[in-house]
């Protein structure tokens, strides 16, 4: 029996680099003890990280699948497991299992489309894997727009990477905004939903991918519908309490769908079929 692969038994992962991105978000680079990537994943999938004795948590893998050396997780400090993770030092071992959840349909619905990524706060983490995947296979996609907003300038996640790599890419347009005026910031000021309406994107051959706090999703969704977007053109990734990650412990269901197995990526028309319990 011990030879059969048990989905709940994790592998050991080692944190080799910790980057303090914002006051409450750190990005952890995890590899196996012998330095390799723990497992392959698709863009948008998640992994269960756990600290023995503290608990387990589901986090989206923020590094792109095309990166084969390591996996990265951007984690905001907001609970017991995340608190413990934030107190870690480099070299600390944790346990990791996955990949879980369905990926973004990067090869079918997204292929050949103009991509519009809209993120708020730590919501950029799940989208970063898709963005870097699309930049890696740049020719498969049309124009890429990234609208990303946060509370303040130092709350912008992966700010260096956005400025030095994304913004300079060909046909990739980055629109950053922060909630309130801040000195040393000459970019746009305002909430993401209003900024999206201001920019006004045409719906022709375009897919929108949203991720952020529920309030931002609600208003951005309304804004995009005003611009004429269809629900079938818009995707998001949900975040509910996930315990087993394999659709058995009965905890993360919205209606008959399990977020950890049938999600976390949902198209908005699929979400409309589900009862509003998320």
């Amino acid at each position: 029996m011990a030879d059969m692969k048990e989905p709940l038994i994790p592998a050991i992962g080692e944190v080799v680099d910790i980057r303090m991105d914002t006051p409450d978000i750190k990005t952890f680079r995890v590899v196996t003890p012998d330095g390799k990537k723990a497992f392959d994943h698709r863009p948008g999938q998640c992994a269960m990280l756990s600290v023995p004795g503290v608990g387990e948590g589901m986090f989206s893998i923020t590094s792109s699948p095309t990166n084969t050396e390591y996996m990265e997780f951007s984690i905001k400090k907001c609970g017991c497991v995340t608190e413990w993770l934030h107190s870690m030092e480099v070299g600390q071992q944790i346990t990791i299992r996955g990949p879980y959840g369905n990926p973004f349909p990067v090869d079918d619905e997204f292929a050949g489309k103009n991509m519009l990524f809209i993120a708020g706060g730590v919501g950029l983490a799940p989208l970063r894997s898709v963005i870097n995947y699309c930049r890696h296979y740049r020719d498969r996609y049309g124009r890429i727009d990234i609208v990303y907003g946060s509370r303040s300038k130092d709350d912008l996640l992966d700010y260096q990477e956005i400025i030095n790599e994304w913004a300079v890419d060909e046909d990739v347009h980055v629109h950053l905004t922060i909630d309130r005026e801040q000195e040393g910031w000459d970019g746009h000021v305002g909430f993401v939903p209003n900024y999206v309406k201001e920019l006004g994107f045409d719906t022709e051959n375009r897919i929108a991918v949203l991720c952020g706090p529920p309030i931002m999703i609600k208003f951005t969704l309304a804004g995009l519908c005003e611009l004429g977007f269809e629900k079938t053109q818009m995707y998001t990734t949900l975040e509910l309490r996930m315990k087993c990650g394999i659709g058995k412990c009965g905890r993360c269901n919205v209606g008959s769908k399990y977020v950890c197995k049938d999600g976390p990526v949902f198209r908005f028309d699929q979400l409309d079929e589900l009862p509003d319990e998320y």
Binding site: A2, I12, G91
Partner: peptide, 21 residues
């Protein structure tokens, strides 16, 4: 019991406690 962990310092050891019933 699903599994057991032994931790010393930064190292973790996972013990698979599954036995043939």
């Amino acid at each position: 019991n699903l599994m057991e962990f032994k931790t010393e310092g930064k190292k973790i050891e996972i013990i698979d406690v599954r036995r043939e019933n």
